[in-house]
Design a protein around this nucleic acid. Structure first.
Lengths: 140, 140
DNA sequence: AAATTATTTGCAACATTGTTGTATTTTTGT
DNA sequence: ACAAAAATACAACAATGTTGCAAATAATTT
C-alpha cells in the first residue's frame, strides 16, 4: 500500500530510505495539504529528533519533493509537489489558499497564477500567490 | 522637514510621539522599501531595546501605518502603507517584489493583483502576490 | 552474508528570534 | 507644573533554528 509508494518516492529521488523520512513523507501523503514545521514536529516529534525534522525538510526541498509556501504569520508551510520541482520553479504555477477558520493550507492545483505586467526594468523569476479566506469545508 | 511629517503621522494615528517610534518611522520613510525586523533592529537597535522594536511594529501594524509582506525565507518584511489600511485589507491591492540580487523588497504600487476564480466553495478574504526576480536597479 | 563505506540520526551546545511582566521613565492632558 | 496615561528598558523566559560530532543505520562491495 502506501509503504511502497513512499519507498519509491524516496528511491526515485536518490534518498536513503530511513524511518524519519518515511514517517514525514507519510504525513504529507495522508494530509494532502500543507504542513508547518511545528505540525510535523508535533506529529512525528515523539519518534524523531527536532534536528532530524529540520534536515529532512531541507533535503526534501532540495530534491523537489516538497515546496514551501510563505505565509503572513511567519511560519512557512510545506506541501508535496505533484510533479518534480527540483528545478526550483515548477511549483509556482498554482495558487495557495489558507483558511482563516480551520487554519489549513492547500494548493489549488486547478487555479493558475495569472500573468502580470511588471514595471519596466523588473524581471520576474518566480511568482507566489497566496489567498486567505474560508475554505470549502468551513464554508458550510 | 521630515521631523514634521513624522510627528503628524504619529499624531494622526493617535500614537504618542516618542523617540523609538520617530526613529523607526524615519527608517521607513527614508527607505521607501520594506524592512525586516532585523533590518530595523540593526539600524535602530543601538538606541532602542529589541522589545521596543517588536512592540512598535505591532502597534504600527494595528494602526495601519505599515503592512506586512510574507516572504519565502521566513522573515516577514514591513512596509509603509501609502494610505490608511487600518481596516486591515486596504493594502492587498498591489504586488510585492523581492529582488534576488540586492535583497530589497518593494511595493509595486502601480501593479494591481489580478482577480482570480476560486473553486466552488472557497471565498477569498485577502490576496497576496509576491514576485521575486531582479529589480530595476540591479537589472543594469 | 559479512564487511566496508557512506549516510543519517540523536545529542549537546549554542545562536537567534519572539514573548511577558514589571519597575522606571517619558509623554500627554489638564 | 502636576497627575494620569503610556512607552521603554530590563530581566527572564519560551520557541525556533543551527552546527559539530559520535553513534547508529542504510547502502555497497566483496
Amino acid at each position: 500500500m502506501m509503504e511502497k509508494k513512499i519507498d519509491e518516492l524516496l528511491k526515485k529521488n536518490h534518498l536513503s530510505v530511513t524511518g524519519g523520512r518515511k514517517k514525514i513523507l507519510e504525513l504529507f501523503l495522508q494530509q494532502e495539504g500543507a504542513l508547518s514545521h511545528s505540525d510535523i514536529e508535533r506529529k512525528a516529534g515523539e519518534k524523531f529528533d527536532r534536528v532530524t525534522v529540520y534536515r529532512t525538510l531541507q533535503v526534501f526541498l532540495e530534491k523537489g519533493l516538497i515546496h514551501s509556501i510563505p505565509t503572513s504569520d511567519n511560519s512557512i508551510r510545506y506541501a508535496l509537489c505533484k510533479e518534480d520541482c527540483s528545478g526550483g520553479h515548477h511549483h509556482d504555477d498554482h495558487v495557495h489558499f489558507i483558511c482563516n477558520t480551520c487554519g489549513n493550507t492547500v494548493c489549488l492545483e486547478g487555479v493558475s497564477i495569472p500573468a502580470i505586467r511588471l514595471p519596466r526594468g523588473y524581471s520576474a523569476d518566480q511568482v507566489e500567490m497566496l489567498v486567505s479566506g474560508v475554505c470549502k469545508s468551513c464554508n458550510i
